[in-house]
Design a protein around this nucleic acid. Structure first.
Lengths: 344, 344
DNA sequence: CTGTTAGCGCGTTCAG
DNA sequence: CTGAACGCGCTAACAG
């Protein structure tokens, strides 16, 4: 059954040596035009498929790239996976999907496996606890590109979102509309993005001459529940904010629910601004304004950067390890408006 | 730099032959306990990582599984990817993520590449145009499990959703609430799920003694736009339905929008029932009732079935190729109610 | 331009 | 229980 037709079979059928067959099929013009097309034909007839394992053993390149993310529920990771996969495929690479659940142990195990698999490169959103492993991998010759979060312990190429600027721009937008009390739902302060978004919010406030009020800030895990809890807490205040900035993507649904359960009209009563765009936001009613962190562009740059280092003579890490930022973009839809008089 | 430590290095350091080292690290008790743990230690010290490529060349097994889906936006595909990836990893396999965009050409190319990569198995949601290729792959010894859609041309193991029953149950639910005119937004009739859901809807209607009215049915591409167009069309009728069953997951957002833009109260004015659960539905206001097609269970069964065939002595296709159905489940939330008197 | 030779790193016979 | 030899399928030296 298992009719694995090998290069030798093709060579024999064509009455040439294996190496000639190899060269002809590689097609670099290392054989005469005649034998080249003849071998192409014979190979096709026999249904020959080169064995990537054998080739990889020889060339020390598996054409496999590790794509390591925390999950696929987050819109950014999803876009990352789709874009990276497609860009890599165009260059003859395949992506191994690795999901870590933001768990250092699973991440460590994943890195080890990727090493055994002789992955040619890795694109990873790090947990931050395995920087040493990642740095070693990179130094060992396997390019590693960090995305979204920076691993402080590793000197890696990394592509990040412009979170400080994005949060600043978003907050500013609300400020310009006239809001003075702006609630913030933000991610855990142990993460880069959590910290950076809070700092952008804070800077905008202070530049506008407003006092930073920590009680208006609700930092928590990346889950809808965080948004619901934060939203309720903000609404329960004697002096609720006139706008809420949900800078923790996963929490958006929770906030939406929190607002709806008290029949709070958006944007008439409270303005709502979210972070990281996703298809659902545009279809909501009112359509939700967002700070788009540019996951697509980030993914493309990550893939490009990796591919560049994969090409012969590609940049080595030590000389060039650097950080890129993808600009954030404010997308105005219908969920933000000037505060009602009552609040002003 | 590239300090690739090989089995030979380990053997030399331990002053044994390569084969002894191999056996010791395999750990099947083929060496003395002493050398076994000694080699384990030395290997660890040297940071030895077996080369999967070389091993695969020898054992004819890459430990790689092709995971082929149309996209990652669809909630079912997302769950499929997460679950399959995790289940496979537990057994030492890795998933290669392949996205086809439901395009037969990309699918064909993907299958070819997977063959070159010597994937040990494939889990695929087929486009339906490459059944021959898939069947050949399966017969060639690489187990292929079809999911979600059936490829008519290929005699494959496949795990499908219970779409006829799910649509039947959903429609019945609305019928029991007292609805008599139920609009249906459904997928393209070229797809199994599109046809089966329509037929389930139809059967429920007829069993209830109602005439099937094709003008209440809007079949279209798997996109939000389909839902918006269908919703508008239904609402524009002189006799609009009192309930809408959105049996095309991607269209849900569009229907939600269509309802909202005319300020139609759900479920007071119109009841809404969707298909395939996702986190967002529960967080909506009102929370959306759904027919859950059980993507998680489907993914688990697909992985399990594949693993089973991968194990030595696993079932061969010809003797056992069969179809599984994952039961659908109605999840009642708040978007369905009895029709208002005006409609009855 | 083509054939011959030699491994890539590992698992697995076959002797000892 | 251990070592020596072979080959998985392919590419890359080196000759001719």
């Amino acid at each position: 059954m298992q009719t694995t037709v090998t290069l030798r079979d093709v060579a024999q059928a064509a009455r040439v040596s294996v190496s000639t067959a190899s060269r002809a099929l590689a097609g670099g013009g290392l054989t005469s035009r005649g034998t080249e097309i003849r071998l192409q034909r014979i190979a096709a007839e026999l249904g020959y498929r080169p064995n990537t394992l054998a080739r990889g053993l020889k060339t020390r390149s598996s054409r496999l790239i590790g794509l390591v993310v925390h999950n696929l529920a987050n819109a950014s990771f999803r876009v990352l996976a789709e874009v990276v996969q497609s860009r890599l495929r165009a260059e003859g690479y395949r992506a191994i999907l690795c999901i870590t659940a933001d768990d250092p142990e699973q991440e460590a195990e994943t890195i080890a496996t990727l090493q055994e698999q002789r992955a040619d490169g890795v694109i990873i959103c790090p947990t931050g606890r395995n920087g040493t492993l990642l740095a070693a991998l990179d130094r060992g010759g396997t390019p590693v590109i960090g995305v979204i979060r920076r691993d402080e312990a590793a000197e890696l190429d990394c592509i990040l979102a412009a979170d400080p600027e994005g949060a600043y721009a978003g907050t500013n937008h609300l400020l310009e509309l006239g809001h003075r009390r702006i609630g913030l739902i933000v991610g855990r302060q142990e993460t880069t993005s959590g910290r950076e978004r809070l700092s952008g919010y804070r800077r905008a406030l202070e530049e506008a001459g407003l006092r930073f009020d920590p009680t208006l800030v609700h930092a928590g895990r990346y889950e809808p529940e965080t948004g619901l809890a934060g939203c309720r807490q903000l609404l329960d205040r004697p002096d609720p904010p006139s706008a809420i900035f949900v800078a923790n993507h996963e929490s958006s649904f929770g906030v939406l629910r929190g607002l709806a359960e008290r029949d709070i009209a958006v944007p008439d009563r409270i303005s709502l601004l979210c972070y990281e765009d996703m298809p659902g936001f545009a279809w909501q009613r009112p359509a939700i304004s967002v700070v788009d962190s540019g996951a697509g562009a980030l993914a493309e740059l990550a893939a490009e950067r990796l591919l560049q280092r994969l090409r012969p003579g590609g940049a080595t890490p030590s000389t060039t390890a650097r950080e890129f930022r993808i600009g954030a973009r404010l997308i105005q839809r219908q969920s933000c408006a000037a505060p009602s008089f009552q609040e002003a």
